[in-house]
Every structure is written in C-alpha cells, then in structure tokens.
C-alpha cells in the first residue's frame, strides 16, 4: 500500500499544474491508476519500458507541457542512459517520483537488492532527490517540485514502498 492514496497524489499533481503522467505502474504505485485516469486535467501515458519515460517527458516539456515521470527504482536502473541524455546532456528539468521497492517491507522479496543500489545510483546520476518514507513527509513532494521548477533543475521524490 502506498503512503499516498490515488486521490491525494492526483490532487497534489493537479495543484502543481502537472499535465501529463508518464509512467509504468508497479504493484504499489499502480493503486494510483484509476485516480489519474479520472482526473480531467491529467493525460496518462503508459510506456512499455522505462527508458521511454524520460524522453517522452522531454518532448512534452519542449512542447510546453508539464510532465512528471513515475517509475519504480527498478525502472530507474533500466533507464539510466535516457535519464543521462535528458537530464544531463540537454539539462531538461524533468521531475520524477521513483518508488523505492521493499523499503518498508521485505516480506515478499527478502534481501531485495533494490535497497542496496537505489540511493547510490541516484547519487551517481547526480539527481537532487528527497526521500519520503512516512505520511508526515508528503509535503516535501510539493516543496521539492516547486524548488526544482524555480531553479529549472531536475528533481526526484524517492517514495518508500512496501511489499513488492
């Protein structure tokens, strides 16, 4: 179960002026799907592989839209070269929410190596991220997004997840 309900995250994204959600749902963030699709102001773009997300979001940004990327940390691992190209070559200020698999529970995947690699890889890609692992920290999402937009830099919210 996600720290944020679908209705809550949809309201946050809507308030921030997000126009497009570019994503692949995982077993936790997937709970948001119906709320996203019910929101008239959000266009949802499901991709086949996470590398597409950063580049589609880049195209949307270049076209004047305000997209957000939502993927699991496994998708972060997969999509590194696209992230590098968009965030570092072209320095396009894309914002993302990345689900941190197994952080809150390793019941289904004991010893999940996502816990070993996620934060070092975000550090390696030099992405400014904030970590949210409790409901009390959810306000950081909006704060970090606004801060990154003001600076015109990319940003990430790393969102703790439970069972895989």
């Amino acid at each position: 179960m996600s720290i944020l309900t679908g209705e809550h995250i949809t309201k946050i994204l809507t308030d921030l002026g997000i126009t497009h959600v570019v994503w692949i749902p995982d077993s936790t963030l997937g709970e948001w799907d119906s709320a996203f699709r019910a929101a008239e102001s959000l266009q949802v773009i499901n991709v086949c592989r996470e590398g597409e997300t950063w580049e589609i979001a880049a195209g949307l940004h270049l076209g004047g839209a305000n997209p957000i990327v939502i993927i699991q940390c496994t998708g972060l691992f997969e999509s590194g070269d696209s992230l590098r190209n968009v965030l570092h070559d072209y320095q396009i200020p894309i914002f993302a929410i990345i689900g941190y698999r197994s952080y809150l529970s390793q019941e289904t995947l004991p010893g999940d190596t996502c816990l070993k690699f996620t934060e070092p890889i975000l550090d390696a890609w030099n992405v400014d991220y904030r970590f949210i692992d409790t409901a009390e920290k959810v306000d950081q999402l909006e704060e970090h997004y606004r801060s990154c937009q003001q600076k015109q830099i990319p940003g990430v919210i790393l969102l703790a997840e439970g069972k895989a």
Partner: peptide, 23 residues
Amino acid sequence: DFVMVPSSMGQASSVGLGIALAR
C-alpha cells in the same frame, strides 16, 4: 529541427511522441 545528437540511442521516437502530444 531537433537534432538529437547526443542521444540515448533509440529514443528519438519517444522524444517525437512527447512533442506531438504536447503540440
């Protein structure tokens, strides 16, 4: 013209899709 050099190889179709959806 958006000349995608440097690129993440293969991603021009995705960038183009984003532009097309935004505009």
